[in-house]
Simulated scan of single mutants.
Amino acid sequence: MQPKVFDSWLAVDRKGLYCRPGGFHIDPHGPAEKAIVTHAHADHARPGLGAALATEETLAIMQTRLGDGAPKTPQALAYGEVLKIGDVSVWLAPAGHVLGSAQVVIEWEGVRAVVSGDYKRQADPTCAPFELVPCDLFVTEATFALPVFRHGDPAEEIGKLLRSVEQFPERTHAVGAYGLGKTQRVIKLLREAGYDRPIWLHGALQETCATYERFGIDLGDLRPATGEKRETLRGEIVLGPPSAITDRWSRRLADPVTAFASGWMRVRARARQRGVELPIVLSDHADWDELVQTIEETGAGEIWVTHGQEDALLHHIQMTGKRGRALRLIGFEEEEDQ
């Protein structure tokens, strides 16, 4: 299939990626009448949607985070459940990114396109694992699409945090973690490593953790850190939004060890710029090896690349004989969850 054939039914307009025969956008970056939402992070799930299709979990998180800005007509679709929208067949496959995250599979006139949203292939106890879907066109993210980004073993990264807690029992460990996905993954990894003490949360993280627990993700003993006495938090692990770990909020903590859980912590300069004492290399996105592996395994002859480090990945795609294209969609910022 030639690129122009894909262009005839999947296009980029002022709202983002648009499926013409289905009449819907995928993760539009502003209000839209009809949309499919891959997951509930803020740069993919915007307020002001009319009819919106997503997993039950994504819709619940959107309601929690957006309130009155949540979709007016939400429709839940289970993984693997096929829905006909006009002449287009649509279904969702797990993306392995965060709870409820999905790849959007679109089939029309014998051709299959997969829009990945954000994804990872590392094991994650807080969400359904990534599912490979063979396709003709694969639209991939490229957040960490440079060979320097290889994320490593999550258990080893959590081990660094636990060793530091043991080494500095008089200090609070303040861990910056994005509220959707990263916070819950850090908590669950701590539990799997045998940490059974209370974990303390900044107020901004509590509602999303409660939503995870409603969907059966047991996070153990969680307690609000805001307003708690400094001595109570001495020797404890406190999770907060990355922005809170270095602002006035953290000053109430007892001589805190500042940590940050992010794929960007692979770059030491980033850690220094943020004043991070304990970088934890933990990402909810595919690293270079996973991106290359996934592109190969889909069997797609054409790859569209969006929101991230596009140039190196496009070069690799072209060197393997596939057709590559940078979509350059606007509206996908670098999030703190990476």
Rank of each mutant, 00 (worst) to 15 (best):
C209I: 01
V238P: 02
G263E: 02
G50Y: 02
R223K: 15
D218G: 06
D13R: 08
G235A: 05
L10H: 00
K182T: 14
E57W: 11
P241L: 14
V267Q: 14
T143L: 14
R272P: 01
A174R: 04
R191E: 04
R112D: 01
D118G: 13
P125T: 13
L132R: 10
L190I: 05
A32C: 01
E157L: 04
T246R: 13
Q184F: 00
Y212S: 09
R325V: 04
D153Y: 07
Q63H: 13
L278S: 12
G30M: 12
G96N: 11
G324R: 03
K72E: 14
H44G: 03
Q273M: 14
V12S: 01
T183V: 11
Q318G: 05
A51G: 04
I61K: 08
F138R: 00
E277W: 07
G152K: 02
C209L: 02
E192N: 11
D337R: 10
A326S: 14
L222P: 09
A254W: 04
G220C: 09
G80P: 12
T73I: 12
R252K: 11
L66D: 10
L137C: 01
S89G: 00
E207Q: 15
D218Q: 09
D27Y: 01
I245C: 10
V276Q: 10
L59T: 08
G100C: 09
H97V: 08
G216M: 06
H41L: 13
L99Q: 12
M265Q: 15
A155E: 13
P71E: 08
I317G: 03
P224L: 11
Y195F: 15
E336P: 00
K84C: 10
F215D: 10
R270Q: 14
K160I: 03
V186Y: 00
G86E: 13
G194M: 06
G181C: 02
S101G: 15
G308R: 05
R191G: 06
W264Q: 09
C19N: 11
K4P: 00
L59C: 09
P71Q: 05
R325P: 01
H151S: 13
I187H: 02
L201I: 05
V238G: 05
I36M: 06
A271H: 03
E170G: 08
V267A: 13
R268Y: 05
K72R: 15
H25E: 00
K120E: 14
E336H: 09
G220A: 07
E81Y: 11
P129I: 12
Q309L: 15
I61P: 03
F332C: 10
G299E: 06
E236M: 12
G275H: 14
W288D: 02
M62C: 07
I330H: 09
D196Q: 14
P129V: 12
R197A: 15
G48K: 01
F332N: 09
A123P: 10
Y212P: 09
G69L: 04
